[in-house]
Design a binder for these strands. Structure first.
Lengths: 339, 339
DNA sequence: TTGTAGGCGTTATCAA
DNA sequence: TTGATAACGCCTACAA
C-alpha cells in the first residue's frame, strides 16, 4: 500500500495537519519542520492521493478537451497541434489534460460532457469548432463550469476565448487569387453549422463580390474538413465541365486532400490549378508544392486558451477575456504560378 | 451544488445504500425500486462523483498514456493513430484516457510516471517506444501497476503486450530491395536505446548479409523518428559522393522527410531513389508517390493494448498476454520503379 | 507553531 | 430487500 499522509505523520511523530501544511507550503510551519517533512515524504515515496484531495478541495486539477470528431480526428494535424499546446500549458500549471473524441451534435457528445461535468472529472473545458448555436456554451455557463473556446457562437457577448478573423482572412486570400487572374474560384466548405464555416464562406462570397464576380453555386461544395473529404470534394469539382481554376478550402487538411485529387488528374498545382487552405499547420509547409494558407499560431493559441481556462478555474479573470487574431496569408507555390 | 446520492435518497425516502446499489446494478434491489431510483437520478441530473468513488473504490477508471516525445510528437501520425485506438477502446469500457507527453529518459519522465502512479491518477498504463532496458517496466512491475506495452525490453519474459516482428519484417523489405537490384542501401535509424531500433537495424544488417553485401557505416545514420529528422538525415545521405540508391527508414515519418529531401534534389522517387518506411500510417498511402512500408494495424493494436490493460486492471489475466504480429510488406511505387 | 476533529461523496460490511 | 455506519485520504476551522 502506498504511504498516506498519516504514515508520514506517524513516522515523524507529528500531526497530519502539520505534515499537510508543510507540504502545501503554508508559512505557519517551522522551517526546520518543513524540511524534515519534505525529506521524509520524499524518502517514503509519499505523494498526495488525488482522489482524496479532489474530494476535499472539490477540484481535480484537470482540464478537459473533447475533440469534436470521431477518433480518427486525432490524426488531423490541426487537432494534434492544438492538443500539443493544451498539454504543454496544462503541464506548466501541473494540471492534467483529459482528452476524448466524440462526433459533434450527437447524444453521446451530450452524455460525455455531462459525465465529465456532473461527475467532477474536470475543472474546466477548452472547446473549439464552435457551432453557430452551441449547446455546450449554454450548458457550461449554466453549470458554472469555467470554459474557453476558440471561436464563439453568434451573438454571444460574454464568452471567454480567442477568435480568429476568418472573414477578413478569406477576403485577403480571395483578393490574392483574383489578382493572379482567377475568376472561377471554388470553395470547399465544412459543416454549415460551424462558426468558422459561416465566417469563411462569408469571406469567400465577399471576395467574389468585391471582384465583381457572380458566385456559382456549383463551385461551393461541402465536406467534412478531413483530407479524405477534401479529396472527394475536389474530384467532384475537377469533373465539372467548366472546372474552377482555383480552389480555396476551409482548412489545410481539406486542401491537402484536394491536392491529392489534382495530382491524380495530372494537373500541375500552382500552374493549372491554384489551391489554398487555412490554419497554417506544419504539414502545409511540407506538401509538394508547399501550400498557400491563412496561418494562425495554433500551438500558441492553444497554450493561451489553456492558460485562460486555468486562470478561470482559480476563480480569477483572465487579463484579456476575448482575444481576436488576424490570420496571416502565407503565399506559397500552390497558388503562385511558378509551379 | 450538484446533487449527491444523499439528495436522491432523501427525495425518495430511501437509504443511500439502496440508491447506491440500485445504480450500480446489484441484484438485491427490488426491480421496482431500481427503476424508480434510476428515473429519479436521471431527472435530478445525478451523476456519481468520481473523486468520492475513486477514493472509496481505490480505482480511477482511467488509463494513462505518456507519449515518449516532446509535445510536438502529438503531430506524428503514429502517435495520433495510436491514441485514437486507445481512446476508442477506453471509451468502450467507460474508461477515460489521461494523456501527456514527455521526452524519454529524462527526470521529468520519472516524475510524471511517479506522480500518476503514487497519486493514484490512473489505474494502469499503456507504453510504447520501449527501451532495450526500460526503467518504466521495472518501476511499474515493482509498484504493482497494471501495464501493457508495445514492444518489450530485452530479456524480459513476463511482460504483457504486443510485439511486432520488426526483424523479419525488415529482412523481407531488404530482400525486396535487393531483388530490385539495389546494392547501396542506406538505413535511417532512431535512438539506439530503442527496442525497435535494435530489431530493425538487425533486420537491415541481416538483409545485407543474406545478399552478400558488406555494410557501409556511412550508410547508417541516426535520427529522431520525425519527418524533420528524416529530412535532415536524407540530405546528408544524398550528398555522399557515392550516394545510396535506396533508403530504408525506421518509420514512416522519417521516410516522409526523406522523400521531401529527395524531391528537393530533383530525384524521381521510385526510379532514381527507392524509399521505404515502417508502420503503415495512413499518411504513407497519400504521399506522392505512395510509400512502400511495413504495415501493422496500429489502430487495432492500440485497441488491443487498451483492452488488455483494462482486463488487467480488473484483476483478470488477458487471454493472450503476449501477442506477436508480423508486419505486412506493402510494396508501393516509392520502391517500385514505374515511378 | 502544532494538534484535534469533522466531513467531502461513495461504497462495503453487517445487521435488521 | 433495505438501512445504519464506518471507512477511503485529505484539508481546514478551530483550539491549544
Amino acid at each position: 500500500m502506498r504511504p498516506t499522509i498519516r504514515d508520514v505523520a506517524k513516522r515523524l511523530d507529528l500531526s497530519v495537519t502539520t505534515v499537510s501544511r508543510a507540504i502545501d507550503g503554508y508559512d505557519d510551519v517551522a522551517e526546520s519542520t518543513r524540511e524534515l517533512v519534505l525529506k521524509t515524504a520524499q524518502k517514503m515515496g509519499y505523494v498526495p492521493n488525488r482522489a482524496a484531495r479532489q474530494l476535499r478541495r472539490q477540484r481535480t486539477d484537470t482540464m478537459g478537451y473533447i475533440l469534436p470528431a470521431d477518433s480518427t480526428g486525432f490524426t488531423d494535424p490541426f487537432f494534434s497541434e492544438f492538443i500539443a499546446g493544451l498539454s504543454d500549458e496544462a503541464a506548466v500549471h501541473r494540471f492534467d489534460l483529459l482528452i476524448s473524441a466524440c462526433p459533434p451534435e450527437t447524444p453521446q457528445e451530450q452524455e460525455l460532457y455531462t459525465r465529465w461535468v456532473q461527475g467532477g472529472k474536470v475543472d474546466g473545458f477548452v472547446l473549439n469548432r464552435v457551432r453557430l448555436s452551441d449547446w455546450r456554451l449554454g450548458y457550461l455557463a449554466e453549470q458554472n463550469v469555467p470554459h474557453v473556446s476558440l471561436e464563439h457562437s453568434l451573438g454571444k457577448l460574454d464568452f471567454a476565448g480567442i477568435e480568429v478573423d476568418s472573414f477578413n482572412g478569406f477576403l485577403e486570400l480571395m483578393a490574392h487569387l483574383v489578382s493572379r487572374g482567377h475568376r472561377r474560384i471554388a470553395y470547399i466548405a465544412g459543416a454549415p453549422y460551424l462558426k468558422i464555416d459561416h465566417d469563411r464562406l462569408g469571406g469567400y462570397l465577399g471576395g467574389l463580390k468585391s471582384a465583381g464576380i457572380v458566385s456559382d453555386p456549383d463551385l461551393i461544395v461541402r465536406s467534412d474538413m478531413t483530407s479524405e473529404g477534401g479529396y472527394g470534394a475536389a474530384r467532384g469539382l475537377l469533373k465539372l465541365p467548366n472546372r474552377p481554376t482555383a480552389i480555396v478550402c476551409i482548412n489545410d487538411s481539406t486542401a491537402i486532400g484536394a491536392m491529392h485529387a489534382a495530382n491524380e488528374q495530372g494537373l500541375a498545382i500552382g500552374r493549372d490549378l491554384a489551391i489554398a487552405g487555412f490554419d497554417g499547420t506544419r504539414d502545409a509547409a511540407h506538401t509538394h508544392p508547399p501550400l498557400t494558407t491563412l496561418s494562425m499560431p495554433l500551438y500558441i493559441v492553444a497554450r493561451q486558451l489553456a492558460d485562460m481556462v486555468h486562470t478561470m478555474i482559480l476563480g480569477e479573470t483572465p487579463k484579456n477575456k476575448q482575444i481576436k487574431i488576424r490570420p496571416e496569408l502565407l503565399i506559397r507555390s500552390s497558388t503562385d504560378g511558378t509551379g
